[in-house]
């Protein structure tokens, strides 16, 4: 059983056990346009909630990705090196960024659920 939560920086995190998988949302990839490059954190790196730990670039824009929760990176999606377009094609699937072992699951409470995020995006339009 997994839960998916969203940050107001347009990242999603899917939690299974104490491992969270992190990526950017459909809305974020639409705003960015064609992703051409993703810089990912190395496994073993400890990141704090809100810390910039990855970069996603389109032709004309570069955005930092902030850790939605604290934890230790366990794996980065190496396939994005050759296929950054996966972020556009399947932002919540093949286009995931990295996984981390959560340091404090209570931090998830500060994030939005799907309905709240949908409302958040709607308010931006």
């Amino acid at each position: 059983m997994s839960t998916v939560k969203y940050s107001n920086e347009h990242e999603w995190i899917r939690v299974e056990g104490d491992i969270g998988t992190i990526g950017i949302t459909q809305y974020a990839q639409e705003q960015l346009g064609d992703v051409v490059f993703v810089e990912l954190p190395q496994a073993g790196r400890k990141v704090a909630k809100g810390e910039a730990c990855a970069v996603v670039e389109s032709v004309k824009a570069a955005s930092d990705i902030y850790a939605p929760v604290s934890g230790e990176v366990t794996e980065a999606n190496a396939a994005l090196g050759d296929a950054p377009g996966d972020v556009n094609a399947e932002p919540t699937g093949r286009g995931w960024f990295f996984k981390l072992r959560l340091a404090d699951k209570s931090e998830l409470d500060g994030l939005m659920d799907e309905a709240a995020y949908a409302g958040f995006v709607k308010a931006l339009a």
């Binding site: 490059f37 670039e57 389109s58 032709v59 004309k60 824009a61 570069a62």
Partner: peptide, 12 residues
Amino acid sequence: LSTREQHIRREK
């Protein structure tokens, strides 16, 4: 690869 440059990355 202009995302390295000042007009996009500004202070970074």
